[in-house]
Lab assay of single mutants.
Amino acid sequence: MLEGKVKWSNSEKGFGFIEVEGQDDVFVHFSAIQGEGFKTLEEGQAVSFEIVEGNRGPQAANVTKEA
């Protein structure tokens, strides 16, 4: 699992980007967020995730919010 911080997200469009130190930003779709209820990410929020190869390149999977 990698750790990063949410660079920005748009809940209306359903995606955002995660900033990882020393690496390119990672695309995240809201379907990759683990948990119940409305899935949102806040700018600056710490997250853990895996990287998978998506249709348009690397993207985050199994995203969990850190406490």
Rank of each mutant, 00 (worst) to 15 (best):
Q34S: 11
F38S: 13
A60I: 03
H29W: 10
A61E: 06
E43N: 13
F38L: 13
G16F: 14
E21Q: 11
E66H: 15
N55A: 14
L2G: 03
G57S: 04
V52E: 07
V28P: 06
M1R: 15
A61R: 11
F30M: 07
A67E: 12
A46S: 12
F17Q: 01
E66Q: 15
E12V: 13
E12R: 11
T64Y: 12
E12A: 13
G14T: 13
V6P: 02
S31P: 05
E66F: 14
E43S: 12
D24G: 11
I33T: 04
V26E: 00
Q23H: 14
V6S: 00
E42L: 12
G14C: 12
S48I: 14
K7W: 02
G22N: 07
A60S: 02
A46K: 15
N62C: 10
E50A: 07
G22H: 04
V47L: 05
V28S: 00
E53P: 09
S11A: 14
K65Y: 12
T64E: 07
V20K: 03
Q45W: 10
R56M: 09
G4M: 02
V47A: 02
F15K: 01
N55I: 14
Q59T: 07
P58W: 08
N62M: 08
A60P: 02
E12Q: 12
G54R: 06
K5W: 10
K13S: 07
F38G: 10
V52T: 08
W8T: 03
I51P: 03
G22M: 05
K39V: 09
V20A: 04
R56P: 05
D25P: 07
E36N: 11
A61Q: 09
N55H: 14
E50W: 10
F15L: 03
V47N: 00
A61W: 07
M1G: 07
E21A: 13
V52Q: 07
D25F: 04
L41W: 03
E3S: 14
K39L: 11
E19K: 12
L2R: 11
V52P: 00
E21T: 10
I51A: 02
I51S: 02
K7Y: 02
E36M: 10
V28F: 15
R56S: 08
Q34I: 15
D24I: 10
T40V: 12
Q59A: 06
G54H: 06
K7N: 02
L41S: 00
F49W: 00
Q45R: 06
E53M: 15
E19T: 10
G57I: 02
S31Q: 07
E36L: 10
V63R: 01
F49S: 01
E3F: 15
N55R: 15
N55S: 14
A67D: 12
E12F: 11
A32E: 10
E43C: 15
K5S: 05
V20M: 08
R56V: 07
N62E: 04
E21D: 12
W8Y: 14
T40F: 13
T40Y: 12
D24T: 09
G16E: 00
E36R: 08
Q34Y: 08
F38Y: 13
G37M: 07
S31W: 06
P58R: 14
D24L: 11
M1K: 15
K7V: 05
K5I: 13
K65Q: 09
K5D: 00
E43G: 08
T40S: 11
V26Q: 01
T64L: 11
V28E: 05
I51Y: 04
G35V: 06
S11I: 14
I33D: 04
E19S: 13
I33M: 09
T64F: 12
S9W: 15
G22V: 01
